[in-house]
């Protein structure tokens, strides 16, 4: 799928994890046996609850288990409300974890308590969905990068400026863009700034939460290419969250499918598309808009038949 990555990081894709069972157990997802390298991020039995009291937790994410290896891209796919973004936010420590553990580089980050170590804030970065919202509208765009570098005590003023320049250059922006306000940039350029902000700290893991969903078709491809190029060059891992299977296919080594807070399938990108195991994955594949009108009558009939079965209660909701 992504040959550049494999050459950069030998054998990051464990072959044994093509989870055939609907529920993925830690053993199946855990590649310790087959992979020589230890995972960068290791999520075990993750549970996240919203709002409800501690005695009666209402879990929106339950029993989620997966690993991300150095230099690997894991796609995380599901409908809205499936808990995929919630999982990403938990890894970013923007949410509290109710159960399970998240280990980064062997350290359980759920044990940090309220404060987050600065080193974690440096190693794990994010690119969010809506680039116009993820940049402060009242600051020139370079400020987001400069402030981050300053916070992490990297370099003096001059070398920080040089680093920001370098990051802008890396994502295909020019020096002229540095002092622009977000509103003066196009959606694609804004997303490039957001990527530059993530990269300037030299992270090991970048959470891309629907990073291309808000962009135009031709811009989507540009950003996906950029992310792959950067991975090849810098060797970081991605957790690539999206609702559209088609989009994650290109960039992911493995893909995890989530539904109503649970992981239903985890497989290599190739296996997931060619031999989907779980009924829900197949349905998701069927719903993903096709790239050609050919066979659309049959697809529609299939969906209608499924909806009918669903309405009659013959399929579990």
């Amino acid at each position: 799928m992504n040959p550049q990555v494999e050459s950069a990081a030998p054998a990051p894709v464990p072959a044994s994890v093509s989870g055939s069972a609907p529920e993925v157990s830690p053993q199946q997802a855990g590649p310790e046996a087959s992979a020589p390298r230890s995972p960068l991020l290791s999520v075990r039995d993750l549970g996240i609850s919203y709002g409800a009291s501690k005695r009666n937790p209402k879990l929106v994410v339950e029993g989620v288990t997966f690993d991300i290896f150095p230099g690997e891209t894991l796609g995380l796919v599901g409908e809205s409300g499936s808990g995929k973004s919630t999982t990403g936010r938990a890894v970013l420590r923007l949410l509290d974890v109710a159960a399970g553990s998240i280990a980064f580089d062997g350290v359980d980050i759920t044990s940090f308590g309220r404060s987050t170590p600065l080193s974690y804030r440096r190693d794990v970065q994010a690119v969010f969905q809506d680039p116009s919202m993820s940049l402060n509208p009242r600051q020139p765009v370079h400020m987001a990068l400069t402030a981050a570098l300053k916070r992490h005590g990297i370099g003096d003023a001059a070398s920080r400026r040089a680093k920001v320049h370098e990051a802008f250059d890396l994502v295909g922006l020019q020096a002229a863009h540095l002092n622009r306000y977000p509103a003066e940039l196009s959606g694609g350029q804004q997303q490039r700034v957001a990527i530059a902000r993530a990269l300037v700290l030299d992270p090991k893991l970048v959470i891309c939460d629907e990073a291309v969903s808000a962009l135009d078709l031709s811009t989507q491809s540009q950003i996906i290419n950029l992310l792959s190029d950067l991975q090849e060059e810098l060797g970081m891992s991605y957790l690539f969250i999206a609702h559209d299977l088609g989009i994650v296919r290109h960039i992911s080594d493995r893909i995890a499918v989530m539904r109503t807070g649970r992981l239903v399938e985890l497989a290599t990108a190739h296996d997931l598309f060619e031999h989907p195991q779980h009924a829900y994955t197949r349905r998701l594949l069927g719903a993903s808009p096709a790239e050609h009108p050919e066979g659309r009558v049959e697809r529609r009939a299939q969906r209608t038949a499924y909806a009918k079965l669903h309405a009659e209660g013959l399929i579990e909701p």
Binding site: R121, A126, L135, N136, A144, A148, R151, R197
Partner: peptide, 11 residues
């Protein structure tokens, strides 16, 4: 979202 982004940067 930009506040989340600032948090993720460690600000």
């Amino acid at each position: 979202l930009y506040i989340d982004a600032a948090r993720v940067s460690g600000i």
